[in-house]
Design a protein around this nucleic acid. Structure first.
Lengths: 243, 243
DNA sequence: CAGTGGTCTAGACCACGCC
DNA sequence: GCGTGGTCTAGACCACTGG
């Protein structure tokens, strides 16, 4: 690992360089989800830096939920597992504090030219196509969410031939295409239910719904998925913590 | 600083003990917002631990936005300053990406018995009273938010006699009562505008509004303020990042 | 018991801000 | 040039896990 003097504008701490090289192993699939990675001492020897520098890189990756460290056992690559996704990417919580994973029923699946919004938020070229999945999600036995997921057709064309779309799509992305979602950005608005929304959710047309527009990014920072969820928030809410 | 062996259930790393003792200085007002605190070496000598341990404590506090570190200059106590609050506690952003601080117009101020919701979320005793402030907030020149702030009367009774309520109330809490907001939790729902909301915001009654219920906590973890904001989200949205 | 990550220390050097 | 925080190293010991 180069430690030579470099121009100030290109200066990156050694531990950041180490971290990037380790993230690269995740991107390239050299380290797979659930796998035990080498110990700090082994990595230090292999890369040629001190154990402390390796530690700082691993700590940073752990803070980004890419790794899981277990004292006495070792460091593991994080998995897109149900309970972790629930905690990390699903912010809808019952007003009574109940926090549970929704079930899904697929309404439709289609491959269509990307809309202007899809092109903009997924950074797609003008003539691109997307795979769209529409589903209704139940929480506590009641349909509370109607959701449209848009994926670049180019990257996910195999979706068209797939018999069944599982509930946990992030695990699907990971298992079928080696795509790990590292980060997502959400935009929340209050909107009025359309009559289609109302029919699925069993509410009045025009009822206020919470609309969550999410763009999910892979480890390289490229947008992977656009998801628009419309939620009935009579008995649930979106929880956000500010620090 | 005790380093003696203690029962496993009470084990706290040294740097956490150091951090807690430094946070105590903030709570007690020994270190005031904006102040330059002693250097790492000085603190290390004073407390009797190594510089590395001090660093880990200071880094943790910096990560919680309690301190600001500036290379070459020193470490400062964070201030409830406009631009920082904007970034940390205000998540409403224009759909065009514009991010600006709202102005406020006070509608009413009253001291009343706490409602059930106020008692629950502010952890108040049954017969407690609260000071309520109602205001309308403008963003980009248009009234977009109606807001009710509830504060425990016991702690903030001086508010009743105050001639003017400033726009940045967190700075007010800091300057007048030495209360620093360290953390806040928000619950978002979509609701229908009441006719009172509609009159203030210039929308139709029944229009969908984003309701943000926030509880803000001080450095000791006690709830300080309950704030309910109802927002028109035609041209703005609430931004949330998931990592 | 051996091996892992977690904490703590001590000292060196680097990048930055200010005089 | 000096003092600050930021990085890097090396080594010691502690706490946890599993055989």
């Amino acid at each position: 690992m180069s430690q030579a003097a470099e121009p100030a504008f290109a200066y990156r701490p050694l531990y950041v360089q180490v971290k990037d090289s380790l993230v690269r192993r995740l991107i390239d699939g050299a380290w797979l989800p659930g796998q035990l990675i080498p110990s700090e001492m082994e990595l230090a020897r292999e890369i040629g830096v001190s154990q402390g520098t390796i530690r700082k890189a691993l700590d940073a990756m752990t803070a980004e939920n890419l790794l899981v460290r277990r004292q006495g056992r070792g460091t593991y690559v994080a998995e897109p597992e149900e309970s972790r996704i629930l905690f990390q990417f699903f912010r809808l919580v019952g007003d009574d504090g109940q926090h549970s994973f929704p079930t899904s029923r697929i309404l439709a699946r289609s491959t269509v030219p990307a809309s202007a919004v899809e092109r903009e938020r997924l950074q797609l070229a003008p003539a691109s196509r997307v795979v769209r999945i529409e589903r209704v999600r139940n929480l506590g036995g009641r349909p509370l969410i109607v959701e449209t997921i848009s994926l670049p057709h180019e990257r996910f064309s195999a979706l068209e031939a797939m018999a069944e779309i599982p509930n946990n799509v992030y695990r699907l992305y990971s298992q079928n295409w080696g795509v790990t979602i590292g980060r997502a950005v959400e935009r929340l608005k209050a909107i009025a239910a359309t009559s289609a929304d109302a029919a699925e959710l069993g509410c009045m047309a025009g009822a206020p719904l919470l609309e969550i527009g999410r763009v999910a990014y892979d480890l390289e920072g490229s947008p992977v998925e656009l998801r628009v969820s419309r939620c009935l928030t009579d008995r649930i809410h979106y929880a956000s913590e500010l620090r």
